[in-house]
């Protein structure tokens, strides 16, 4: 985790007893990852801020129901995921984000790009352009794959916690994660394949 605040620093007892100062500490500890998740899921700052505010408002209301089965952060992610899905459903009712397996069963995730770009120099892969290509590829992922990818590979939750946060089964999380990773690999392969070809042409 990139968050420096240790989970153990927040007292659940104090939170449940209505300690406002403790809740403020919870907000400061976890608002950044919640905001980032919203931003990457929804692609705009206003929606991300709404998700952030609604997540902590909801947490404040439902703290008494928090059973401590998962960590507080995973519980907050779960609320944030639901808030973000609500925004997506409102904006794009045609997008099927609730499918378990069936909807993308027919999609082919087999690799079609076999360019070995992994040995390209790090300073190219991590250049501003390289990072933009990666960013674009992530934003191109369909929502149902992106959500799982963000929680697992960017926020670095375990498979179990990702399942908890999304309400999916662990095997479903794994299927989506694999598809997300394969899609990113495919997109980056196309991008770097093009760059390698260009360089060959330019001698």
């Amino acid at each position: 985790m990139t968050e420096t605040t240790n989970q153990a620093d927040i007292s659940l007892d104090a939170l449940c007893a209505g300690d406002r100062a403790e809740f403020a500490r919870l907000v400061d500890a976890y608002s950044a990852p919640i905001y980032r998740l919203g931003l990457r899921m929804l692609g705009n700052e206003q929606d991300a801020e709404d998700v952030l505010q609604n997540t902590f408002l909801s947490a404040l209301t439902h703290l008494v129901n928090f059973e401590g089965r998962s960590s507080v952060l995973t519980w907050l992610y779960r609320i944030a995921v639901n808030e973000a899905l609500m925004v997506i459903r409102r904006a794009k009712p045609e997008v099927n984000i609730d499918d378990t397996e069936a909807a993308d069963e027919n999609e082919d995730f087999s690799p079609s790009q076999f360019v070995d770009w992994g040995a390209l120099p790090e300073d190219l892969l991590l250049s501003v352009e390289g990072k933009q290509a990666l960013d674009r590829a992530i934003q191109n992922l369909p929502e149902n794959l992106r959500m799982v990818f963000l929680l697992r590979d960017i926020q670095e939750l375990s498979i179990k916690d990702t399942a908890e946060a999304t309400g999916l089964t662990e095997s479903n999380v794994k299927v989506r994660l694999l598809r997300a990773r394969l899609s990113l690999r495919e997109q980056l392969s196309a991008y770097y394949g093009e760059r390698i070809n260009q360089e060959k042409k330019n001698g």
């Binding site: 608002s31 980032r36 700052e45 992994g118 991590l126 990666l134 590979d153 960017i154 990773r181 392969s189």
Partner: peptide, 27 residues
């Protein structure tokens, strides 16, 4: 290349965006 893709995601610090101060104030 799959391994490299995941490595890039991790080392690109995509998770490091700070919360803007005004967003924190409004929250």
């Amino acid at each position: 290349t799959t391994r490299k893709t995941i490595d890039l995601v991790h080392v690109s610090n995509l998770s490091q965006t700070d919360l803007p101060e005004e967003v924190r104030d409004r929250l």
